[in-house]
Amino acid sequence: MDDAARDPVPQVATAGEYVALLRDVRRRSGLTYRELARRASAAGHWLPPSTLATMLGRTTLPRERTVVALLAACGTPAPEVERWLETRRDLEAHLGERGRGESDEERTSAGSSTTVPATIHPGVSAVPPRPVAPWPARRWLRLALLAVLGVLTVGASGALRPLAPPAADSSPTEGCPAVLRQGMYGPCVLNLQEHLAADGLTVLVDGWFGPDTTGRVMVFQAFGGLPVNGTADERLFDELAGDRRVPTTWPEDRIGKHLRQTFPEDPAGAVRVARCLSGLDPYRVEVVEDGSRRWGLFQFSDVEVSRFGVDHRTALDPDWSIRAAREIWSRTGDFGHWPCAA
C-alpha cells in the first residue's frame, strides 16, 4: 500500500482514544474474539476472549503485553507494533504528568489542546508475523530444553506427567489443559510462571509446577479474591492478564528490624525462628501432607488463621503475622510453639 492510500496519522490525547484505535484494528480484522485468542496463542501470547473484551470495553490504558497480543493476532507487522507501543509509552508519560487521578473525561473537559502524535497505522496483513518479543532466544531455548527434558524423563521413569493437548476449545491457549496444577511441567507452566513474576511475585521461572509455584498461585488467589486452591484455570489467567498486581511486601531488613523491636527479650531468636519457618518471606505458603496450608512469616495453619478471625490475605501481612506471633509468645514466654528444623 502506498503512502497516499494510507489512513491519516491518528492523534491521541487520552487512553480512551488509544483504546478506540485498538477497537478499530479488531473491527478491521473481521475476526471474532475466540479467533483472535487462537491466533494470539499461535504467535506465543496469552489473550483470553474475556480479557480482550474487557480491554476494548474500557477507557483506561491497556497493558503493553495485551496490546502486543491483539496486534499480533490481527497480523500487524512488527515495526507497526513497536510504533503502537511507543505511542502508548508516550501517552502514559504524558497522562502521568497531568495527574494519575484524573479520568479521560476529566482531561478532555479540562480543555487540553496537547495531543500525543501517534505514527501508527491500524492495518491488517494476511499472515500474522511474530512481533519482536523480549529475550526471544533465551525463552525458546528454555522451551526446547524443557521439551527434551520431558521426553527423556518420561521415557526413563514415567514419573513425570507431560501436558496432554486438550480437546478443541477447552482452553483459550491451544495445547494447554484447561487447568494447570502441581506436578505438571512444560511451556504452559512456564507461561504461568512468567505471568506471576510480571504481576509482582518472586517465582522460579523453570517450567515446573512445583510447591513453590503452587504457593505463589495461592498468594495471587488470596489477594485477588479467587478460590484459594493452588491451581491455575482460565479465570486465574484472566486476572493475571488484567491490571491487578500483588502488593509489594516488606524486604528482609525491615522484617528483621520489626522482629527485633517486637521481641526485645529475644530479638535474635525471633529472627532465627521466622527465617527457619519462612525464609523471612511474608508470601510463603506451604501445603502440608494432610492438604492444609501454612501462611506467612510464622507459617500459621488454616486452623490458626480461622481462630484469629482473619482471612488468608491478612495472614500474608507481615505486620499481622509478627503481632500474632507476639500474642502467642506472651502466653508461653518462648518460641516453642514453632518447632523448626533448619
Rank of each mutant, 00 (worst) to 15 (best):
M1D: 03
D2K: 05
A4M: 12
A4R: 01
R6G: 01
V12I: 11
A13P: 01
T14A: 02
A20Q: 13
L21G: 07
L22P: 00
L22V: 06
R23G: 06
R34F: 09
E35W: 12
A37N: 04
A37P: 00
A43T: 06
H45F: 15
H45I: 05
W46H: 11
P49F: 10
T60C: 11
V67G: 00
V68D: 04
A69I: 09
L70Y: 10
L71Q: 11
A78T: 14
P79A: 12
L95S: 05
G96W: 01
R98V: 02
G99D: 04
S109P: 05
I120W: 10
H121G: 05
S125H: 04
A133Y: 09
A137R: 14
W140T: 13
G150D: 07
L152D: 10
A164I: 11
P166Q: 00
S171G: 09
S171V: 07
P172F: 12
A178N: 01
V179K: 00
L180H: 00
Q182K: 15
G183T: 02
M184L: 12
Q193Y: 09
L204Q: 04
F209E: 04
D212F: 11
T213A: 13
G224E: 03
G230T: 08
D233S: 07
E265Y: 08
P267I: 11
G269L: 06
A274H: 10
L280P: 06
P282A: 03
V287K: 15
D290G: 10
E304C: 03
D311S: 09
R326E: 07
I328F: 11
S330D: 14
S330F: 14
F335L: 01
G336E: 13
H337W: 14
C340V: 01
